[in-house]
Structures are given as C-alpha cells and as structure tokens.
Design a protein around this nucleic acid. Sequence first.
DNA 1: AGCTTAAAGCTAATTGGATTAGCCAAGAGA
DNA 2: TCTCTTGGCTAATCCAATTAGCTTTAAGCT
Lengths: 205, 205
Amino acid sequence: MPRAGLTPGRVIAEAAAVADEVGLDKLTLAAVAERCGVSLPSLYKHVHGLDEVRRGISLLAVRELTSTLARAGTGVTGPKSLHALSAAYRDYARAHPGRYAASIVAPAPGDQEHADVGADAVAVIAAALQGYGLDGSSLIHAIRMWRAACHGLVSLEGAGGFGLPESVDRTYGHLIDALDAAFRNLPAADQSPVAGESGPDPGIG
Amino acid sequence: MPRAGLTPGRVIAEAAAVADEVGLDKLTLAAVAERCGVSLPSLYKHVHGLDEVRRGISLLAVRELTSTLARAGTGVTGPKSLHALSAAYRDYARAHPGRYAASIVAPAPGDQEHADVGADAVAVIAAALQGYGLDGSSLIHAIRMWRAACHGLVSLEGAGGFGLPESVDRTYGHLIDALDAAFRNLPAADQSPVAGESGPDPGIG
DNA sequence: AGCTTAAAGCTAATTGGATTAGCCAAGAGA
DNA sequence: TCTCTTGGCTAATCCAATTAGCTTTAAGCT
C-alpha cells in the first residue's frame, strides 16, 4: 500500500469539501476516507475523530470568512462598507454551506485557539463598522445585530425558507439598510454590561 | 406485554421532548422508545422512521409557535406589537430549542400539509405587521427581515455565540427597533418580483 | 548499501443506532 | 366464544464510529 501523503490539514480540507457537498450534519468519516483514497480507520492516524474534524472545519471556515470579510471591507467606508461586508458574508455562505454551518458553532469551553480565531473575525467586523463611531457596548451590540441579521437571512435562505418569488437580494438589501440606519442612531457609548449575564467564553461577540 | 397505548401523536410529542433535551441533531429513536417505555422497533408501528418523526416535530413546533405568536400579537399594535411578537418568538426558542430547530427546516417539495402550517405562521406575522400599512412585496420583505433577524439572533444565542457580558436582551431590543424604523420607511408597495428567482415551494415567506 | 524505527496503512472486532422481518398476545367486535 | 387486526417483542442486517493490533513504508543514520 503506497502512502497517500495525508496530513491533518489535508484531511480537514477534504472533510470541508464533503461537508459543502452533503451538508455538515451528514458529514461522515467514511465519505472523507473514500475521498482521501484511504480506509476509514486510517484517518485516525491524522485526526482523533469526527468531533475534531468538525472543529477543524470550523477553524478553517472562520479563518476563510475572516480574510474574505477583511478583503471586502478594505477601501470602502460607511454604508458601502456595510453592504460590501454583508455581500461577502452571504457569498461565502452560499459557496460553502457546510463550512459556513461549521463556522457558527461556538468554541468549546477552554478552546483558546478557536476562541482566538473568532475574536479575529469580530475585530474585522468592528473595523468595518468604524465609520459609525461606535464604541464600548454600542459596538458590541452593533456587531451582534449585524451577525444576527446576516446569519438569520443566510441560514433561512440556505434552508430553503424563502419560497416566494420576491428577490432575496432585495430583502437582504433592505435588512442591511435597516442596520445602517440603526447604527447611526446608536448611542456612541451604550450602558455598561448588565450584571448576572456573564457568558461562558468571553471574546466572541 | 401490556399495551403502552401509543399513538403517532404521542410518539412525536415524546420525541419533541427528547429533542428539546438533547438537541435535534442528537435525537435518536432509541431514546424516544425508552421514553415511551417500548422497544425501539415497536415505534415503527406508529411512525415510519426518524425522518417522519423529525417532520412531525417540525409541524408540532410551527403550530405551537404560530399560536404563541398569535396570542402575543393580539391586543397590541405598532412597535409594541412587533416587540411582543419578537419576545414571544425568542421565548419559545429558548424554552424549546429542539422543536425550534425543527421548525426552521423547510417543507419537503410536495408536502402540502407542512407548507400550509408554514403559511399560517406567515399569516400571523403579517397580521402583526398590519399597522405599518405594507402590502405586496414590501410586506413579504418585511416578514422575511423580521424572521431573519429573530432567527439569527435566537440561533446564535442558542449556539452560545454571544460570549461577552453585554445584555442580549438589549441587543435584541435594538435589533427590533431597527426593524420598526425600517418598516416605517418601506415603500407601501415595493417593486414586483424579480424574474428568474422562483423558489421551490411558494407559500412560505 | 544496510539497519532501525516512527509513522501511516490495513484488517478485524466492538459498539450503537436505524430499519426490516416475522412471531405472538391483546383486545375489539361479530 | 371466535376471529382478526393491532401493537408489542426478538432476531437479524446494515452502516458509521472507534479501538486494537499487525505490517509496510520510507526517512535518517552508519
């Protein structure tokens, strides 16, 4: 048996491709192994199991998304920037549905590397929102609002949730416009955090 | 062996409970059977398999959500109505995460019953938006925007996506405010559908 | 060139869930 | 009481994940 030249990274990349094809929920190591030209148990020489593969796809996806967003956000400002960012986000999700789904799962408690790539992504979004002059809690709220709106639309769209013939592009445009308007009216610095609501993993929005 | 008195509805209800406890993705017929006090294969006398059970949970969830929203929307108007509807939506999702996840999956092509309950839900939302005086495409866009925003926030929240201590309640409030403002400025009747974008299952947003 | 050894394959075996087949008892109705 | 449908059970099959243990590759030294 000649060696296949596998590496953990290669396995994750093939797994990401499988996830994009069949959906993250239907991702199977059997399919990944076949794609790698190797028996299923052989994968275990490179990755520890399905959970680790899913985490790997998540890291990959968040990194890709971050650099895509960063590229989309450079050179434009104001509402233009917001629309550019949002378009890039949706494009990525449509081009890589499996990876995108993986990108949404939160880091496990204590997974610093995963938390860090998430923080990088948030930083890129924060940079794109610079023009609104938000900071502190207002900036956090704005980032959350943007993520929620984009993720909601993109995930409903991906689930086939928009059956009517109206243009989803246009819906998306209206939604981003709504955020743009709202961001202009957010207080420059919102109230401080509310007590008793500390989350499990600070650093990710 | 005394009879357990099972019915398809009872099986679905127990399955929904399991899904709420362990997550829709980890729902297993084995767990449902145990909860029903019956062997796994016995379930097949009442339902045809896991897929049908998932569909059943989806129908149940959409119906419950619809009546919850309808109740929340009665008696209030304007921005109050929007906030009431949105709060009810989020409360349902937090109280029943498994069902909520099931409620999002789109009907299979040709599944008229499923499409119908979806249409009922949309009608309830449309009714709550009455005060904005939208119709035609604008109304569709508004409903989509609201669904996207609520689903996005609720699903990121459920995934543990908001780690920072800022109040998610407040984020949600800002988001709904943003929609309220946007709905006031939507054209009373937006442009007609864009050609070449017909979806698979008209009738669901 | 030849030796040593970790890494990377493989097959076999186990576990757990879904599904199907086929047997048997419960209990409703003639 | 007899009958027949219904609902429950066990046994068996399939598929994916995971673990154990064996073997070969090929890289690094003499």
